[in-house]
């Protein structure tokens, strides 16, 4: 955590105009390349080979988070056929998690993929938020504070997984709606989120993120041929607390395999680095330009004065 604090401080310092501090700390920025996350952060390993698409997780989430009654019952599987704008179902202000069905030509059965907030180690929503509405808790959850949110929706732009949604239907009390890992009701007491508890197939395994990676690797190693040799989320966007195992290449089950392998913040760093430079160099530079540009006039003025004195 120390590392990330120092980097954020560096940026704060730059903005406040405390140039020297900023320049000194910028060295740390180079060194502090990535935030490894809280060591004891929890996570969930989703095994796509186990999911049978029963939507129990969706139902459990709906009840746990007090979300509105859905249009169709949770045991209605026709939702898997729903397509909007050519896209399968996604999270919205009524659902923090949804399961989608993928028909894989090589397989005799479909695969199902649950989506929800992946609770990144260094979340893009958090780093893009200008009112600090997001917090990554030591337990691993990325939580949101609706009391300070301004509703700019930059987090929705920044999230590489298209997870945060906005309560567009409300004029007076809108907010971001997103999975919070059941933080206030469960995770902070060490309990698994409602969806994990509801899953009959244990397609969702809850545990310490580090242990889950070991477990995922064991599954891949001990059942050769069953899984693609990759844990999605171990490295993606700097690592996520929710990770996935799949029997087919991840792009066939709706994953974006082109997301960066480092935190989203890293692509913004180039700009953040110039901020203290502009703040410190520009004033002197342009004051200098001004003196140079107006020198002739000054000389003329002085000459005029001298002439006047002589006369």
């Amino acid at each position: 955590m120390k590392k990330i604090v120092s980097r954020r401080n560096f940026i704060k310092g730059g903005l406040a105009g405390t140039a020297t501090v900023a320049v000194m700390k910028s060295k740390e920025t180079q060194a502090a390349h990535s935030f490894e996350g809280y060591p004891d952060g929890m996570g969930v390993l989703v095994d796509l080979t186990r999911c049978v698409g029963c939507r129990s997780c969706e139902a459990a989430c709906n009840k746990e988070q007090g979300l509105p009654t859905p249009a169709k019952p949770f045991d209605d599987y026709s939702v898997f056929q729903e397509i909007k704008h050519g896209e399968k179902r996604r999270t919205d202000e009524t659902a923090y998690t949804v399961v989608n069905q993928y028909d894989i030509p090589e397989l005799d059965h479909p695969l199902f993929r649950k989506i929800q907030c992946n609770h990144c180690q260094e979340p893009a929503c958090l780093t893009s938020c200008f009112v600090n509405a997001y917090t990554k808790t030591p337990e691993g959850a990325v939580i949101y504070n609706s009391k300070v949110c301004v509703g700019c929706r930059t987090c929705m732009i920044a999230c590489p997984f298209y997870i945060p949604t906005f309560k567009y239907s409300s004029a007076f009390n809108p907010r971001i709606m997103k999975c919070i890992f059941c933080y206030d009701t469960r995770l902070k007491d060490g309990k698994p989120p409602a969806c994990v508890e509801a899953c009959p197939q244990e397609a969702l395994t809850f545990g310490k993120r580090n242990d889950l990676i070991t477990m995922g690797r064991q599954r891949i190693r001990e059942t050769p041929g069953k899984y693609v040799e990759h844990i999605y989320g171990e490295k993606e966007v700097g690592g996520t607390a929710w990770m996935y195992l799949s029997s087919v290449p991840f792009d066939q089950v709706g994953f974006d395999t082109h997301v960066p392998q480092e935190p989203i913040l890293n692509s913004v760093k180039d700009f953040l680095a110039i901020v203290p430079m502009v703040l410190t160099i520009w004033p002197g530079l342009f004051a200098g330009f001004h003196l140079l540009a107006t020198r002739k006039e000054k000389i003329k003025e002085q000459e005029m004065e001298k002439k006047e004195e002589k006369a």
């Binding site: 980097r7 940026i11 704060k12 780093t127 938020c129 200008f130 009112v131 600090n132 953040l272 901020v275």
Partner: peptide
Amino acid sequence: VSLGPAAVLFLV
């Protein structure tokens, strides 16, 4: 009220 100085939008 609530400052998020590490964000680009904060700067904007």
